[in-house]
Write a protein that binds this DNA or RNA. Structure first.
Lengths: 174, 174
DNA sequence: TATTGTTATACTCTATAACTATA
DNA sequence: TATAGTTATAGAGTATAACAATA
């Protein structure tokens, strides 16, 4: 670690210790300090990296991570009402409307009438949506495999339980 | 503002819409299906939970995770130029301006003149910024301890190496 | 009265292009 | 020409309030 002169002048005493020509620290050499011991920061960076790869893998289908998650929940729970799908994914009702609108416009999702409650919709995949999901799941498996290749299968498997436990932290707190 | 919600115009009484006759489920019972085997989805949910707790812990100081990360990098690398701080955190130059503006307005960060390059600024914490960071780091440690309590110290420690490896995935691409 | 879906709105975060002043 | 900081702008993502239809 550390690369070049760590100019440890205290704040307020800027005497300009930079010899000209001395390479100013570039991004890669910057010390993140205590940030490397903050799990939230690491989680964020890891999630961004994974989503970037996911985005690239699904670019041909123009499907974003949130859309894949919506389609997956509908596929796994056919007939679930709109509000329940959004709630399961942590998406507010108001924001969920436009997302379903787009998936419906693209012919992937249907808003079927709910038999017992005329206020709500029963969401289902269309035939095309079902066919697409088979492709998307295959792509997702290959995307997942890239992560396995990067950290090893055992380490990969060991991540799920703690991440789920963390995700549940402070769950019933409004 | 009259919006005339004239929805439900079609599909009068299509009682057989649910091909499988799937029972309606409530939110808590929703099966996430393959989503629970997608690391990216778990990472996102875990990161959101951690950030929510972080946000609550820092609410009294009106400091968000991104601001804490900026202040930490400046504290660890005093005199670093503005662009390098943003780059180290994956923040675009254009978006970084307003963030530093706010921290400067609040008296936490100074834009000192860079001795060798009059185009750039050397970022440093003010005395108040330095004092605040001592408080924030203490809060961050307590926040971190909550995660340790939730998953155990050994599991907690085992998360860092794989998360860093994942964060570096596809680093030199684009 | 409470809910389900909806519209409107606002605020944050992110991404790109173009400008300025320096180099 | 290239770089550092800036401005303007646009797109996602997320949050709340209020409304119509229905329960």
């Amino acid at each position: 670690m550390g690369a070049m002169a760590s100019r440890r002048s205290k704040a307020g005493d800027n005497e300009g210790a930079n010899e000209e020509g001395a390479p100013v620290r570039d991004g890669a050499a910057v010390d993140h300090g205590p940030l490397d011991r903050r799990l939230g920061y690491l989680l964020r960076r890891a999630q961004i990296a994974v989503f970037r790869d996911f985005f690239a893998a699904f670019a041909d289908h123009d499907i974003r991570p949130g859309q894949y998650s919506i389609l997956t929940v509908i596929e796994t729970n056919p007939g679930l009402k709109q509000g329940a799908v959004g709630e399961a994914l942590g998406i507010k009702r108001a924001n969920f409307v436009a997302m379903i609108d787009e998936l419906q416009t693209r012919g992937l999702v249907r808003r079927d009438p709910s038999p017992a409650d005329r206020r709500s919709y029963a969401l289902n995949l269309t035939a095309e949506g079902t066919r697409l999901m088979a492709e998307l799941h295959a792509l997702a498996e290959r995307h997942e495999q890239k992560i396995v290749d990067a950290i090893g299968l055992e380490t990969y498997r060991a991540l799920f339980a703690p991440l789920k436990a963390i995700a549940r932290m402070g769950e019933g707190e409004a």
